[in-house]
């Protein structure tokens, strides 16, 4: 039973290994510590957002607002620090709080009025995008030496591979996510809610509180993703973010979490982000034209998802035959 539940997860990790092996055969300098460290820091912000998204999807919902909330967070941070002159650390706290409150607000509306999450968070997406431009109409550099130092801090591992603060945050968030999902009552409630909301209600679980908390976590992760994006570029930009929600959803689904809720793992999302990042890096190494890059990404995603489903379904049939 335990093994069968893990099949999607194992399939993802298995295909990730195949992908890395194929890529390292095709490209010199691919499977180096430096390149691997680069994949991690390039996609750390996406990974953090995807972890938040995992909780939402596990609870049976979806959060389309995360991309623009990320963009909104970068520009809010830039404005607080560079225009308002707020020191970096309090500014980061404010941005996290705002992201968290925004998510909680969406969760509150979803729960109170029994509205589809897709819809409410779609509206959140537009809202965050519009407000971003009110905060500042164009990209803004973050003028804080402390922030810049934090952003460029690198721990050298395996020779010259840089372990950045963003990478460390990503690993920390994944660890905390795993702990919350599997070792707390809240985590069990999220799974129960995604499995069947009506049963969760009957079992007397705090459905409303759990739902709101899940969207708050997602909003908070989106804000943290925004802060990490800002660290990556020491700037904020109101025009970015749209589309990142789809990347995050893709990572979660690649990681084996079902959009129907109740089934999946946070560690799967880690694998999903690595797969996504590796595919994108392979495409960059290949130096494809814009059109071919899209075609390659589409085909690789298609191949990956199809294989994953075939493995899972084959295993399901195998176990049925065995019983």
């Amino acid at each position: 039973m335990f093994q069968r539940k893990n099949i999607p997860l194992l399939a993802t990790f298995g295909v990730l290994v195949v992908l890395l092996v194929v890529a390292s055969v095709l490209y010199r300098n691919f499977l180096t510590p430096l390149n691997f460290a680069n994949i991690l820091r390039n996609y750390a912000f996406l990974g953090v957002i995807a972890v938040g998204m995992t909780f939402v999807i596990l609870s049976g919902g979806i959060d389309l607002s995360v991309g623009t909330v990320m963009g909104f967070s970068t520009i809010l941070l830039a404005r607080l620090i560079s225009v308002q002159g707020v020191p970096a650390l309090p500014a980061i706290c404010v941005v996290l709080a705002v992201g968290c409150a925004f998510g909680a607000g969406l969760g509150l509306v979803i729960h109170t009025y029994r509205l589809p999450p897709f819809l409410v968070t779609l509206s959140g997406m537009f809202l965050a995008k519009g407000i971003s431009f009110v905060i500042l109409p164009s990209a803004q550099k973050i003028d804080s030496s402390w922030f810049a130092e934090l952003a460029s801090f690198k721990l050298k591992v395996f020779g010259n591979a840089p372990l950045t603060v963003t990478t460390m945050i990503f690993f920390a968030v994944v660890s905390i996510g795993i702990a919350i999902a599997h070792f707390t009552r809240f985590g069990r409630n999220v799974y129960a809610l995604g499995g069947a909301e009506s049963s969760a209600v009957l079992m007397g679980l705090p459905v409303g509180r759990t739902k709101i908390a899940v969207y708050a976590i997602s909003g908070c992760c989106a804000a943290l993703g925004g802060i990490m994006w800002a660290m990556n570029s020491t700037s904020g930009n109101p025009a970015i973010g749209l589309g990142t929600e789809l990347d995050a959803i893709a990572c979660v689904v690649i990681g084996g979490t079902l959009l129907t809720g109740g089934v999946g793992y946070v560690v799967g999302t880690l694998a999903g982000v690595l797969v996504f990042g590796t595919i994108a890096t392979v495409i960059r190494f290949q130096g494809l034209e814009s059109s071919d890059a899209r075609i390659a990404l589409g085909i690789l995603l298609l191949a990956f998802i199809t294989m994953q489903r075939i493995v899972v379904q084959g295993a399901a049939r195998g176990s049925r035959m065995a019983t």
Binding site: N232, N237, I240, G287, L288, S290
Partner: peptide, 13 residues
């Protein structure tokens, strides 16, 4: 050659 598809994070990468 690398095309960033309009995203700065891709271009930095």
């Amino acid at each position: 050659f690398s095309d960033a598809q309009g995203k700065q994070e891709n271009q930095i990468a």
